[in-house]
Write a protein that binds this DNA or RNA. Structure first.
Length: 199
DNA sequence: AAAAAGATGTGCT
DNA sequence: GCACATCTTTTTC
């Protein structure tokens, strides 16, 4: 996606990332192969008024990528694992979209191996699962996803009629009421609830 | 310096 | 469904 795609309100970017593909070239068995899949669940973390956002207390060394140019990867460690985000809005803003789940499409075998799992819906249905399946770690923090040749987000050629829904975010205690989670209705690879309570 | 919290995942009951 | 492993960052003493 072009940089301008990310240089918009974070909730819009989070909603529109649904259906795009996240791909990464990985060295496997001596060869470079593409691994990745279709994004089915995201969450927005805002620069202001969002107590759950890492940027809430200003820029630090560890969250610097959240304040970098839109389209910059923000990879942070938590609970001995990693989560992958993309910085949004203007540089210096401090906002990002967390990629929570993807539908695995390319390099299923490699993902199964890296995840030590065999069931497809246990490969990339959770932010830390995605990082392990795609071998993303802190070294990837700060990567410019617009220009990188081996790590990017792109539009997929499909005509699927995805129904996108919003809900509160998962696993947070502060600002928990904000409807900033976006997911594909009834998609089996979504990590949390697959429909909202009203449907 | 020490302790607790955290945008999690797994395994067991 | 619940407890807990695991480790980095942040907060507190």
């Amino acid at each position: 996606m072009p940089r301008a795609f990310y240089d918009r309100p974070t909730a819009i970017v989070a909603a529109e990332l649904i259906g795009k593909v996240l791909v990464r070239q990985i060295a496997s068995d001596g060869k470079a192969i593409w691994a990745g899949g279709r994004i089915v669940e995201t969450e927005a973390y805002l620069a202001t008024g969002d107590l759950a956002s890492h940027s809430q207390r200003g820029q630090t060394k560890s969250n610097a990528s959240m304040f970098a140019r839109p389209g910059t990867a923000y990879v942070y460690p938590i609970h001995a694992k990693h989560c992958f985000n993309v910085a949004t809005e203007a540089a210096g803003n401090g906002s990002a979209v967390l990629i929570r789940a993807i539908e695995p499409i390319w390099d299923l075998d490699g993902m199964k191996s890296r995840r030590s799992q065999t069931l497809p819906n246990r490969l990339t249905s959770g932010p830390a699962m995605i990082c392990q399946a795609l071998a993303i770690d802190r070294d990837d923090d700060g990567t410019d996803l617009i220009n990188d040749r081996h790590f990017r987000i792109a539009t997929m050629n499909d005509t699927d009629d995805l129904t996108v829904r919003a809900s509160p975010r998962i696993g947070i205690s502060k600002s928990a009421e904000l409807p900033l989670r976006f997911f594909v209705l009834d998609n089996p690879f979504v990590s949390g609830p697959k429909r909202d309570k009203s449907s």
